[in-house]
Design a binder for these strands. Sequence first.
DNA 1: TAGGTGTACTAATATCCTTAATACACTTTC
DNA 2: GAAAGTGTATTAAGGATATTAGTACACCTA
Lengths: 131, 131
Amino acid sequence: MFFHIDTKSNAPLYEQIIQQVKEMCAKGLLTPDERLPSVRELSSHMVINPNTVSKAYQELERQGIIVTVRGRGTFISKKTDRTSDPGRLKAIRESLKEAVIENYYAGYSKKELIKLLEEVYEEMEGKTDEN
Amino acid sequence: MFFHIDTKSNAPLYEQIIQQVKEMCAKGLLTPDERLPSVRELSSHMVINPNTVSKAYQELERQGIIVTVRGRGTFISKKTDRTSDPGRLKAIRESLKEAVIENYYAGYSKKELIKLLEEVYEEMEGKTDEN
DNA sequence: TAGGTGTACTAATATCCTTAATACACTTTC
DNA sequence: GAAAGTGTATTAAGGATATTAGTACACCTA
């Protein structure tokens, strides 16, 4: 239930934590109301500063991913549909756009790119085959 | 044939230039052997430092997107298939993974995500409908 | 009360981004 | 050859961000 640091990455530590929490939620490895490690616990385990962990948790709360309760800890939020949130849609399109550009330079076809997306999707969802 | 700065973005100026050059190549708005604006020309037009433009061009050359010729200028490289380049494939998967995670929070289905990818793809390629 | 929670604050350091000014090597044109 | 245009290299400075360190506070639970 902890995270790992990629020292080769240019991404800040607090963003690496954010990314991994979101990824684990999407994968179902973290479920609503589940408790995250405390700030001090996680910081000492990752050998980083408590402030850095706190910064990550605060940003996750700002995004609605987690909820913090003073004196008790931080917990995964209940998932609410946000299909009407234009910001989320824009973020998806932005990521897909980057993928399409990289795909252009890689030289794969449109079909192959879609197949790749399906692969990544199934790795994430654990091969549930609805829709 | 110039680029625009998004002051709201946290992305560094030189990365915004890189992104836009790659996007224009993928869209076919920049073609092989076409000449880019000179470092001084672009920097004065964008009202930024020549060093910043130079940094963007050097990174683009490192990625094989452009070629610089001393005393002549910088030009778009000929496109070569890189389907065997594992780095490119990894970059694509990474972008797709981010899209899938965002898609999880947005609450769209797998079908809808694939449809979104097709939309973005066609916006890029100008609706050529092969494969 | 004791120990665990998240939070706030100030200070210091390191790294990155950007600008500035100058100089050099190369190519093309006249 | 001279002039003007190319990309590049260098040093210096300022600003923003990321990270660490140390301390203190407010809250909850046992």
